[in-house]
Simulated assay, not measured.
Amino acid sequence: MRQPIRVELEAGKTYFWCECGRSQTQPFCDGSHKGTPYQPMKFTAEKTEVKFLCACKDTEKAPFCDGSHSR
């Protein structure tokens, strides 16, 4: 089980969420997906705030945690 990762997002900044689970800089992409069918999810923060990003990769609200890790 992987718990969500607390991050402070900055309004207007673009992020790349790791979708493959291989990144050493979770929850963000470090390029480790190369050679896999996965691609990072690009998203831009709407406002500066603390959010919990999914680390289990089972969320249906990617890149944000929806509690799937506890099922």
Rank of each mutant, 00 (worst) to 15 (best):
S32P: 08
G35C: 08
H33P: 13
E46G: 11
K47A: 10
K51H: 04
C54A: 04
G35L: 11
W17Q: 06
C18P: 09
A62L: 07
T14F: 01
R71F: 15
G31E: 13
D30W: 08
K13V: 15
E19Q: 14
P27T: 03
G12C: 08
E60Y: 04
M1A: 01
P40K: 11
M1C: 06
V7A: 06
A55T: 00
K13S: 12
K34L: 12
F28C: 05
V50R: 07
L53M: 02
P37I: 15
D30A: 12
W17D: 07
L9C: 08
C65V: 00
A11Y: 01
I5K: 14
C65T: 00
R71W: 07
F52C: 00
I5Y: 09
T25A: 13
W17H: 15
S70D: 13
G35A: 12
F43S: 10
Q39T: 14
A62R: 13
R6M: 09
C54R: 06
Q39E: 14
T14I: 03
P4M: 05
S68A: 14
D66Q: 07
Q3H: 05
V7R: 14
T44A: 00
D30L: 07
Q24I: 05
R6Y: 03
D58Y: 01
T14L: 01
C56W: 05
S68G: 00
F52T: 03
